[in-house]
Design a protein around this nucleic acid. Sequence first.
DNA 1: GTCTATATAATGATAGAC
DNA 2: GTCTATCATTATATAGAC
Lengths: 196, 196
Amino acid sequence: MASSTSSEALRRGEGRQRIVDAATELFITRGYAGTTTRDIAMKAGLRQPSLYTHFSVKADILVAVMMQTVRPSVDLAAELTADTGLGGVERLVRLVEFDVRMLCGGPWNIALLGYLPEVRTEEVLGNRNLYQDLRAAYRALVAGALAESGRTDVERTTDVVMTLVEGVVLRRVQNPDLDPEELAPAIARAARAIVS
Amino acid sequence: MASSTSSEALRRGEGRQRIVDAATELFITRGYAGTTTRDIAMKAGLRQPSLYTHFSVKADILVAVMMQTVRPSVDLAAELTADTGLGGVERLVRLVEFDVRMLCGGPWNIALLGYLPEVRTEEVLGNRNLYQDLRAAYRALVAGALAESGRTDVERTTDVVMTLVEGVVLRRVQNPDLDPEELAPAIARAARAIVS
DNA sequence: GTCTATATAATGATAGAC
DNA sequence: GTCTATCATTATATAGAC
């Protein structure tokens, strides 16, 4: 944001990204409080004080890590809500399948971070909005799906569907080898059964 | 276990239980690494070194806290598996409903502890068996339920059902006011739809 | 931007009086 | 069993040379 150097050291913000990548793995495998700034620096190939060239406090690294998540599905949800070319159930199922693939894929179970107690108490309050946005999006799509079968228990069904999708995060904790290509359609099928 | 004092100070192991209760709340709200032994002692009404009368290391307190969980549902699962007076679907649904009520009720979201990264790396390996036992129990009940409709995708369906149930833990993180009496039947209904 | 060196504070755990 | 006092470690963060 404030970098004005012409080239060299900052091509692609390499240093900062290396720190974020290292921190992502460590936060997921050891938790936030359980990860030291020395751990992060070492994995990023730096000495501990060098982190503070890029981040002013440890929590800022966490924020940067969490930025990588949630956004895409909120965006897709908004997109689907506006899409009138699909049936209600189909729109919901598309979001579910997309989310499961995202939660299940990728090298690290990043979504878990948003549920860690230590993280939820910190100054990372800015993205709680994101979760509320996501629930609102799910609620709208569930409402559209239930309308097709004349059901009206929108709130409760939204909770059930979100429970199913969020559950993927914990299932992945227990079984790190989940196959997205297999689980995503299966969860989507379950979602279809729930709203029918 | 080794206490031989006749009475007074040890009625109901009061001191130890106060520590466990205090630690339960703190571990859930701040995480394990994010909770200091001073925090625990203060909430239990003690000074920090007094913890070491009851526990020899901090991790032992965590173990004591985690003992409070999981057991009941493994026991019920075994019981249901042996119960021939119920249909396959019905047995599974009973376990699901019981688990949701347990995960959803109680003052603290204790089950989340078992998924914290910091906890899963520690010397708390003894109860990973418990989780494997639980999956085996679910698998057996899912198999019995699917048999009624001629389906054979047992492994995948077990994952889906467990995803749904485990999801309650994270849903509760987002919404601490979940009503077990409302959610449990709804999740049970979803489970029925999934295996039908 | 990264380094070495270091300040400062907090942590888990122990010793020994009562 | 709980206390006060304290140790040894480790943590985040800063200062200043290169």
